[in-house]
């Protein structure tokens, strides 16, 4: 996911308040919307992206870190992800920031290092495979049209 969990919940609550409630008729239906808002607020206090979701992303970062350690002659000034101490969005983002810096650093080198290329590609592939396997089927026709569609 690309939105942080608490900010996504905040935005969903505001979408219900600003876009759904004003157009919802009937006490029962409006009450149901407030019920959803209330429970979203509870989720915000108690939930976050799961350890399983973030854990795989951090495991991929750690695999990359170990792969880079094994590359002979990799310059000490080459950026690389640090050893991870916690399973959080912040830790994942800090690790990915280092991978971005590594890619930029590598692109600026006159001579490419195939082992770095392979390690980074393996990391990117693992991350993307995980992101895709944890994504629901898109509903853009329904979102755009406001009604059920056949696909």
């Amino acid at each position: 996911m690309n939105n942080s969990f608490p900010r996504l919940i905040d935005g969903m609550i505001e979408a219900l308040r600003q876009n759904v409630l004003p157009a919802t008729e009937g006490e029962f239906a409006r009450g149901q919307v407030f019920g959803v808002i209330f429970l979203l607020k509870n989720l915000r206090l108690r939930a976050g992206w799961s350890t399983a979701f973030l854990g795989e992303q951090l495991a991929a970062l750690d695999e990359l870190r170990l792969s880079l350690e094994q590359i002979d002659g990799l310059s000490a000034d080459a950026p690389r992800p640090a050893k991870l101490a916690e399973v959080t969005e912040q830790a994942r983002d800090a690790g990915d920031a280092q991978v971005c810096a590594l890619i930029d650093w590598h692109a600026a080198q006159g001579t490419k290092i195939p082992a770095v290329e392979r390690a980074v590609d393996a990391y990117l592939h693992r991350q993307l495979r995980h992101e895709l396997s944890t994504s629901a089927k898109p509903m853009f026709a329904e979102i755009s049209l406001g009604k059920e569609r056949s696909t």
Binding site: M1, L8, M12, E14, A15, P138, M139, I143
Partner: peptide, 18 residues
């Protein structure tokens, strides 16, 4: 969605397509 107060659910839905 996160930083401009544009609370349209199409925005985070778009983000799932990254």
């Amino acid at each position: 969605f996160e930083h401009k107060g544009f609370f349209d659910m199409r925005m985070p839905a778009m983000a799932t397509q990254i």
